[in-house]
Simulated scan of single mutants.
Amino acid sequence: MNLKHIKAVAFDLDGTLVDSIPDLANAANAMRAHLGLPPLDPERIKSHVGDGIASLVHRAITDERHAEADGPAWERGYRFFVQHYREHLADQTTVYAGVRDGLGLLRALKLPLLVITNKSERLALPLLEQLDLRDPFSLVLGGDTLSEKKPSALPLQHACQVLGISPKELAMVGDSTNDVAAARAAGSAAIAVNYGYADAFTLGADLTLASIAELYDLMKNN
């Protein structure tokens, strides 16, 4: 795939830049204990990630992807989860191999880099800072930054407006159906990583990468 026309690259956060499952699972199980529920296997919690903290709390309480928890239980759980997770954002969360090198290579091409995540901005920003990953990104959009989040095209469209580029000049790199769907809706290039939380080859992306460092060779002009 020829990406030499791309003028900016957006990245999902969880499952693309960082593996946050250990800390999300710990927060989810601490919340379940607070609500008098037994712990879930981290792999179950991993399957519930991707649509933001509010959805994760519903799923972590019910252990079902499409069910909603009782209102008062969700409110208690949500408050506890956010407080616990904020205090332990980067205890066990790690940056994926190749991410720092890949971001450095892309910055050498003078390409604006941004994060578009469904994680709330008030959690995404401190997580990036604690992992020393904030500096490469000129813009960070969380799931609560705008009125809509992925799979809506709005975050990508907003980013393009801020950068003064067209959506077809933006590449969206992620690991989920939300990332690919948002890119499709916006008319941007959809790129999947094969090490994230979903089976990348089922996502229908334009391109699948083993490392974001591979983007450099696809985007450099010589």
Rank of each mutant, 00 (worst) to 15 (best):
K4H: 09
H5E: 08
A10I: 07
F11Q: 02
F11K: 03
G15W: 00
T16G: 02
V18C: 11
V18T: 15
S20W: 06
I21G: 03
D23E: 05
A30P: 11
M31H: 09
M31D: 12
R32Q: 14
R32S: 11
A33Q: 15
H34G: 03
E43H: 12
R44V: 14
S47Q: 13
V49D: 07
G52H: 02
A54V: 08
S55V: 06
H58T: 01
R59Q: 13
A60Y: 06
T62N: 13
T62D: 12
T62S: 11
D63L: 07
A67V: 07
A73R: 15
E75M: 06
Y78E: 03
F81A: 00
H84W: 09
Y85C: 00
R86C: 00
R86L: 02
D91K: 03
Q92W: 06
Q92D: 11
Q92M: 04
T94H: 07
V95K: 14
V99N: 06
R100W: 11
D101A: 13
L103A: 10
G104T: 05
L105W: 12
K110A: 10
L113H: 13
L113R: 11
V115I: 14
N118K: 09
K119N: 02
R122G: 03
A124G: 00
A124Q: 00
L125V: 14
D132P: 08
L133V: 08
P136D: 15
G142H: 00
D144T: 05
T145Q: 00
T145Y: 00
L146A: 01
K149L: 04
K150W: 03
A153G: 02
A153R: 11
Q157Y: 04
L163S: 00
I165F: 03
P167E: 07
K168H: 13
S176F: 14
N178E: 05
D179N: 05
A181Y: 13
A181T: 14
A182D: 13
A183G: 08
R184W: 11
A186L: 05
A186R: 10
G187K: 05
A189G: 02
I191E: 14
I191G: 11
A192G: 04
A192V: 09
V193R: 12
V193E: 08
G196I: 05
A198E: 14
F201M: 04
T202R: 15
T202P: 02
A205T: 07
S211F: 05
I212D: 09
L218M: 01
M219Y: 11
N221Q: 08
N222V: 01
